[in-house]
Simulated assay, not measured.
Amino acid sequence: MLAAAIYQEAPDEPAPAAARPVSGNKPGGLSPDRPHGGALMMLFGLLGAAAAWVLQTEIGETLAAQACFPHRTALAAPQWPWLMSSLGVMSAVALLIGAAGVWVAWRGWRMTRAPRPDPAAPVSDTSAGRTRFLAMAGFMLSVLFLVGLIATGLAVLLVSPCSVWR
């Protein structure tokens, strides 16, 4: 309480040197010259590739099931001529979204991997470690789901949607 009373200043006086932030560092240990991606970018890096894979798999399987097995009867070829091209386009879009998720997660991990510690940060401030952990987890998950997107895209190209393998 005494320290707060000592460092209170009048509106027209500049702040004393001890009350100013050291080199502009924000709490959390990250220096101000590093851009912050934000929570939405971190969420996209964490779940973007996974969501793309789930949507690619679910939409593709649903379309293939409706085109190849109408009324529970197997057809030799899909009843819709546009099915293969739409599955290919959907796989390419999902692959691009997954690659964007990997890039965002990698960029977030790179930005948080070697922060300059803030000497005035409280000991209980764990936001920098949490950010690093989420960025690394997002990078690993995105890479794994990108491999899944590639495998699913290859399956779309190599296996007919009306084959018995689906």
Rank of each mutant, 00 (worst) to 15 (best):
A128M: 12
L134H: 08
P14F: 10
C68D: 03
I6D: 05
A52F: 08
P81V: 03
V159Q: 06
C68L: 05
A5H: 13
L47E: 00
R132N: 07
S23C: 06
A114D: 15
A52C: 12
M42Y: 04
G129L: 08
A51Q: 08
W53L: 06
A3T: 14
L154T: 06
I97Y: 04
P14N: 10
A4K: 08
S163K: 04
A51T: 14
A5N: 11
P119S: 07
G148N: 12
P21Q: 12
A10T: 06
P11N: 04
V147S: 07
Y7I: 06
G38H: 09
A151Y: 13
S124A: 07
M90I: 07
A17R: 15
L134D: 07
L149M: 14
A99P: 01
A99S: 14
P21E: 05
F139H: 02
R72C: 00
L83K: 09
V104N: 07
D118V: 00
R107W: 03
A94W: 02
G138Y: 06
L149C: 07
L87C: 06
A51W: 05
E61H: 13
T112F: 05
P32T: 10
R20C: 08
W165N: 12
A17V: 15
V156Q: 01
P119L: 14
L47S: 09
L55I: 15
S127R: 01
W106H: 10
A17E: 15
G101C: 09
A39G: 10
G98M: 07
L46A: 09
P21M: 11
A100R: 00
L154A: 12
A10H: 10
V102D: 04
L96Y: 10
M84Y: 02
A100P: 02
A92K: 03
I59E: 12
G88Q: 13
G38S: 11
L63G: 04
P11F: 01
A114P: 01
P117V: 11
V54W: 08
V54Q: 02
L75K: 15
S127L: 06
S127T: 06
V93E: 09
A65H: 13
Q66V: 14
R113W: 14
L30T: 09
W82Y: 14
A151C: 05
S160R: 12
G153D: 02
E9G: 13
G129A: 12
P27S: 11
W80Y: 15
A18R: 11
A100G: 10
